[in-house]
Design a protein around this nucleic acid. Structure first.
Length: 213
DNA sequence: ATCCCGAGGG
DNA sequence: CCCTCTGGAT
């Protein structure tokens, strides 16, 4: 299978080659437990993980768990997370999320998709990050990178992230979905960038539907 | 479809 | 200046 043509063939070949390219791909949001990863992922919307990692140490020093965060001052949390953008909404999400954990889950992070997405500010992308990275459960986070690369390579034509996720899920073994997502993200940053992809350096350029080589 | 909304790169 | 960064709620 050198030059796959079917979407599933492209997905499997992509995962195989990126696995060789990025064997040690990991989540780059700093965190010590599921609660911290959940909060960091909420902050990561439309923001670099590097920027998130600059604010979370201060945030978690003052508010290390759901109990303390649920009672935090809204103005104080806004100050702490301001540089990540969308800070008014993100603060509301953080406080609401923490309150929901206290009220409905004894202060801990739930594991089901339904419970996670019921939390304020938590959609499927965030829920899948928490599930795959912190809870070791099946989850394929579809962010801007995963969506862009999947479309460029020819794995899907969908634009809606949820539809992309539904199409990709059956193409990848459940235990490898999180890793697949992380590798696409890494490749999206380093090679297949949004603005100016470096197709000459891409290990997928022989079968990529959008290759300019 | 639109809004939120700061920071860095080109 | 414009575009993009691990989105989610309305």
């Amino acid at each position: 299978m050198g030059t796959p043509r079917s979407p599933k063939g492209r997905a499997r070949e992509t995962h195989k080659r990126l696995g060789f390219e990025y064997p040690d791909a990991k989540c780059e949001l700093d965190h010590k437990n599921p609660f911290e990863l959940l909060a960091a992922t909420i902050l990561s919307a439309q923001c670099t993980d590097k920027r998130v990692n600059m604010v979370t140490p201060n945030l978690f020093r003052e508010y290390p768990d759901a109990e303390s965060l649920s009672e935090a001052s809204e103005v104080r949390v806004q100050e702490l997370v301001r540089s990540t953008g969308f800070y008014v909404n993100k603060t509301k999400s953080l406080l609401g999320m923490a309150q929901a954990l206290v009220d409905n889950h004894n202060g801990s992070v739930p594991s089901s998709m339904k419970e996670l997405t019921a939390l304020p500010g938590v959609g499927r992308k965030t829920a899948n990050v928490v599930r795959s990275v912190a809870l070791d459960l099946p989850g394929l986070p579809v962010d801007t990178h995963v969506g862009r690369l999947s479309r460029r390579i020819g794995i899907t034509e969908e634009k809606d992230p949820v539809k992309v996720e539904m199409e990709l899920n059956p193409m990848v073994a459940a235990s490898e979905r999180g890793l697949f997502s992380l590798r696409l993200i890494l490749h999206g940053r380093r090679v297949c960038s949004s603005r100016k992809p470096v197709c000459e350096d891409c290990v997928l350029n022989d079968f990529c539907a959008s290759s300019e080589i």
